[in-house]
Computed example of a mutant assay.
Amino acid sequence: MTEPGNAPGNVQRQGRALLEARPLLVERAVSRHAEGSARLRLGHTEVQATVSIDHKVPPHMRGRKEGWLMAEYSMLPRSTQDRLPRERNLQNGRRHEIQRLLGRSFRSALDLRPFRNQTLIIDCDVLEADGGTRVACILAGYAALHDLSERLKAAGTLRSSPIVHPIGAVSVGLVGNELRLDLDYLEDASASADLNVVATADGRLLEAQGGAEGAPIDPETYIALLRAGLAGAAFLLSEVQRQIG
């Protein structure tokens, strides 16, 4: 795989190459109360993820050998340039779509057998949005799960980490016939095609969400987007792992 930022022929856009991700900063153990937590900044997008343990499971998981995991997503009112109303409507379609993506991604990463009869709840809150919020939430959620694991191991509750597949994520898109990694808001708004790619550290795909925004694209372009996304997701995951230890 080509490492983002080092591909031949890259040209600069606002200080970074086409296949270069924005600067990433992550800190774990940012909440005194949550069982696991992390705050992450990707460019100007900033999110906080917390993990809570609920000592019950939904009805469809009763009697199973493993626990359950669910994710919730929200954007603070001034996470965007214009104030967003607080999301009081629980039927918000975009929010539910993102929550399903987050839940599937985190469940794929974990062995939930150590959490039998328990539910892990990952709350992802967008503090500031400039594109790639769901990607940033996956990266922050992974860091928060790592924090949970380290805390439980230190307390003697877990013998080993339940994270079996470290996961990364990135957005990738086609902007003016240029393939670009890690889109900010303006790039995302003008992209003719875009994907959110979730993948493991060794380049295996968990999910690719997205497609053409206007005219159809050919399969070769889609595959190029996917390959760039796989490389970018692995790179951002390595950055998260390096910073959280």
Rank of each mutant, 00 (worst) to 15 (best):
N92T: 00
G131L: 07
E87L: 13
E87A: 13
R83S: 08
G103M: 00
R86N: 12
H96K: 14
R94H: 15
D111P: 09
R88G: 05
P85F: 08
T133M: 08
I122H: 06
R78L: 04
P85Y: 07
E87I: 11
M75A: 00
E128Q: 10
D130P: 04
A129P: 00
L101Q: 04
Q118H: 11
D123S: 12
G103R: 04
S105W: 02
L110C: 02
I98E: 13
C124H: 14
T119S: 14
V126F: 00
G131E: 14
V126D: 00
E87N: 15
L102C: 06
F115K: 13
I121F: 09
L90A: 10
G93H: 13
R116C: 15
R104I: 01
R107Y: 01
R104L: 03
S79T: 02
R100P: 05
L120N: 08
G132Q: 10
R86K: 12
Q91D: 14
E97F: 06
D111R: 09
E97D: 13
R86H: 14
L84M: 09
L101N: 06
S105C: 04
E97W: 07
M75I: 00
I121P: 01
N89M: 07
Q99K: 01
L112K: 07
E87T: 10
R94F: 08
Q118E: 10
I121Q: 07
D111V: 09
Q81H: 09
R83T: 11
R104M: 01
G93P: 13
L127A: 02
L120Q: 06
G132T: 12
L76P: 02
G93E: 15
A129N: 02
R94P: 06
R78P: 00
T133C: 14
